[in-house]
């Protein structure tokens, strides 16, 4: 025992005063206690994949919503003379980015052939000579707008529906659950298509159809969690004190529902983005000449064999968007789940 090395004096055997003891105790408070959200955020920050996903999303957001600054061309301006030009990035001389293309076995400068002069298109042009880069940025913006709108309905409708259903219980709950069950036995896409047919294809039709389908999962999860919380002591105490249901919802329920809500939101978003792209891809979504990642992929697919970049770039952006949201969602779920704490 190394500790014993120190000689013990008799003075050491006098009692410690209560004040000194409390001092002993306070010295020991080393790790500051974190709130639940801070704690989750700390864990999320340690998750490399989730942080990369978050950064990618932030960059995409900035590019898409600041597209006025980044767009090199008007996304809808056609220029038949300069159709189907390959990507050309000034100063980079790598095949695929230097404006050259393989034509019957030899590599030719497509820009020179089209007499494009000094013009360049970062990701090339489509069959109408529209700048693909600008169109992809525009399509990304549509996707992100859809994401925001879907989140809004998830929160405004799904969360409220879930809380009301779980909180009220009884008959109200039964009826509200029946409605959800019926909604669940119709494939979402079918509901969307029917609505879009009634409302005429376009952005607003897509928004309505996403609004009507996106909240269901949120409502179910929030209801389940509310049912669980409802009988917990702090809620019972608040009820016994006569606090109004509305106040309890905001003060006690919502903070405890926050992790469920955030996690589910992160899965609603990629679903909504997928459905917009899907509808636009099959031709009843965003209508021409506006760009959406779905329409861009559909356009590019027709020329995929000869001008693969026309489908690859929008497809990559759409996939990256989905992957980033899914990874971030996974990361959030892990960081909110107390079970995964080490």
């Amino acid at each position: 025992m190394a500790d014993n090395a120190k000689p013990i004096s008799t003075g050491d055997f006098k009692p410690v005063t209560a004040a000194d003891r409390s001092h002993l105790d306070s010295e020991k408070i080393s790790a500051p206690s974190l709130t639940f959200l801070q704690d989750s955020w700390r864990r999320l920050r340690k998750n490399k994949a989730a942080m990369i996903a978050l950064i990618v999303l932030i960059i995409l957001f900035i590019l898409a919503f600041g597209s006025g600054f980044f767009e090199t061309h008007n996304p809808n301006a056609t220029n038949p003379n300069l159709a189907n030009l390959p990507p050309k990035i000034p100063g980079i001389d790598i095949n695929g980015f230097n404006g050259t293309i393989m034509q019957s076995g030899t590599r030719v400068n497509a820009y020179a052939q089209a007499h494009a002069g000094n013009a360049y298109y970062l990701l090339g042009t489509d069959y109408l000579g529209r700048d693909l880069f600008s169109r992809i940025l525009y399509g990304t913006r549509i996707s992100l707008e859809i994401a925001l709108i879907a989140s809004f309905f998830d929160l405004a409708f799904g969360v409220v529906y879930g809380i009301v259903s779980g909180w009220m219980g009884g008959r109200v709950d039964t009826i509200m659950q029946r409605i959800i069950e019926i909604m669940l036995s119709i494939p979402n896409l079918v509901v969307m298509v029917l609505l879009i047919l009634v409302l005429k294809p376009g952005m607003s039709a897509i928004i309505y159809s996403i609004a009507i389908t996106s909240w269901i999962n949120m409502a179910r999860l929030v209801r389940a969690q509310t049912l669980e919380l409802k009988n917990q002591e702090f809620i019972l105490a608040a009820r016994a004190l006569g606090e109004s249901s509305l106040k309890i919802s905001f003060k006690h329920l919502l903070p405890n529902l926050s992790s469920v809500i955030i996690i589910n939101l992160m899965f609603t978003i990629p679903t909504a983005i997928f459905f917009e792209a899907f509808l636009s891809y099959i031709g009843i979504g965003i209508s021409a000449p506006q760009a959406s990642l779905g329409t861009l992929i559909n356009d590019g697919q027709k020329n995929f064999q000869f001008l693969p970049y026309q489908m690859w770039y929008p497809a990559i952006v759409l996939s990256v968007l989905m992957i980033a949201f899914n990874i971030l969602g996974d990361g959030l779920r892990d960081s909110f789940d107390p079970k995964s704490r080490e």
Partner: peptide, 22 residues
């Protein structure tokens, strides 16, 4: 296994179908 499932859940079916076809 996580990477494979994230990729497959994220890449839209119509993109995957076109790539497989090509």
């Amino acid at each position: 296994s996580t990477i494979v499932s994230i990729l497959l859940v994220s890449i839209p079916s119509f993109v995957l179908a076109v790539l497989l076809q090509y």
